[in-house]
Simulated scan of single mutants.
Amino acid sequence: MGTRDADTGRQSIMLAVWQLIAHHGIEAVTFRRVAERAHVSVGRIQHHYGTRDALVRAACAAMIEGAHAQYQELPDDPSARLKHILLHALPDSPRARFGASVWHAYLAKSVDDAEISRLLAETKRGTEDECVRLIKLSTRPPGDIDARIAARRLLALADGLTVRVLIGDLSGREAHELLESELAALGR
């Protein structure tokens, strides 16, 4: 199998895992169900991932890698990049709702899976560090705000708003407006 075919197969498998998680939870992920959705053999999945846990973890890592690749494609504009970090996960479209529900299933799984916990913590730290960097590149004087505290507040707000939109307590539009107003207050 060529590299392109292998990549397509891997993408199909990852998408199948995410679909199962989004619609039925992580516990619904089995080799058989993934194989059916991805239109590949169970043996192929077992060969590449070995165990169900390894498959779930690989799909978590692939989700993170995909978000990082998408971020790398953005223009090199600190304000646009900061805005993207804060707004991209708000479930204000079917696609974003799908991604947020899968992400939150991984958050729940991190309680009893040290590898997923490590992946998510590493990702959150990297996201926070990038927000700090972007805030420092803003037009405000460096002493005007503590960039680390500002980054943590913005990320916590974005995380909390995502949950409220997922449960239907706020609309995606309301969440976007609130985050936009917080960014405007920072001069972004």
Rank of each mutant, 00 (worst) to 15 (best):
V17L: 03
L86N: 03
T30V: 09
R44M: 15
H48D: 13
I85W: 07
P94T: 01
D112A: 07
R140E: 05
P142Y: 00
H24R: 14
W18S: 06
L87K: 03
Q19D: 08
F31V: 07
P91C: 07
V17A: 07
A89Q: 14
G50R: 10
F98T: 06
V42Y: 14
A59P: 03
S41R: 05
V29A: 10
A58T: 01
R140I: 03
E130Y: 06
I85F: 03
R97I: 00
Q72K: 13
A80W: 04
L134Y: 03
V102A: 04
A61W: 07
A58P: 03
H39N: 14
G25D: 07
E130N: 11
G50M: 12
S138M: 10
E115C: 01
D76R: 11
Q46F: 04
L55G: 02
V17E: 06
S117F: 11
I135W: 02
V42S: 11
D76L: 10
R81D: 04
E130W: 05
E36D: 14
T127M: 13
P142R: 10
L20M: 05
G126S: 11
V56E: 02
F98C: 06
H48G: 03
C131M: 15
V102N: 09
L87R: 01
H88N: 10
D129I: 11
M14S: 04
D144Y: 12
K83G: 07
L119Q: 14
L55S: 02
L74Q: 11
A96T: 08
H104A: 06
T127L: 13
H47G: 07
R97C: 00
S93E: 05
Y71V: 03
L137C: 11
M14W: 01
P141H: 10
R52K: 12
D129V: 12
V111R: 15
V34L: 10
D129S: 14
S93G: 05
Q70H: 13
R52C: 09
H48M: 11
V34M: 08
C131G: 06
D76Y: 04
A114R: 10
A89I: 06
L87H: 08
H104T: 08
T139H: 15
A22F: 02
T51M: 07
L137G: 12
A100N: 01
E122W: 05
R57E: 15
V29L: 07
V42C: 11
G25W: 09
I116C: 05
I45V: 15
S110P: 03
A105W: 00
P142E: 00
L90S: 01
S110V: 00
V42E: 15
P75F: 06
D92I: 07
K83V: 00
V102G: 04
A69T: 14
A121V: 13
P142V: 08
A22W: 00
V111M: 13
L107P: 00
L15I: 09
P91W: 09
E128M: 12
H88S: 14
E115G: 01
S117L: 12
L134E: 04
L74I: 12
A105T: 09
L82Q: 02
A121M: 11
Q46G: 14
A38G: 09
S41P: 05
A61G: 09
S101C: 00
A16L: 04
G43Y: 13
T30I: 10
G66N: 13
T30N: 11
R125W: 13
I135N: 01
P91L: 07
M14A: 00
L90W: 04
